[in-house]
Amino acid sequence: MFLINCPYCGERDQQEFKAGGEAHIERPKQPTELSDDEWAEYLFMRKNIKGVQYERWNHAHGCRKWFNVVRDTSNDEIKAIYKMGEKPPSQ
């Protein structure tokens, strides 16, 4: 049960949050132009890394804001947290 530093509320217990999968997968602006394969890439393909992963989290039982988290999935160490729309910290 780790702690997450919500960029809007501050540090809170993990159970207030909902994980939202891999970050920085942008919904295609023109889905109709895409081939089945290209659309499938957006729709289904997600990374599941042992190590540093870029993820979306939502403060579901708090301010309900979405934001990004850089987390080491092997030990749950959180390396960085930044708001939606902001650039990820350099790797």
Binding site: N58, A60, R64, M84
Partner: peptide, 11 residues
């Protein structure tokens, strides 16, 4: 509600 908020905030 969660899904609508997600699209509104992120997409």
């Amino acid at each position: 509600l969660g899904k609508l908020e997600d699209y509104l905030q992120t997409e």
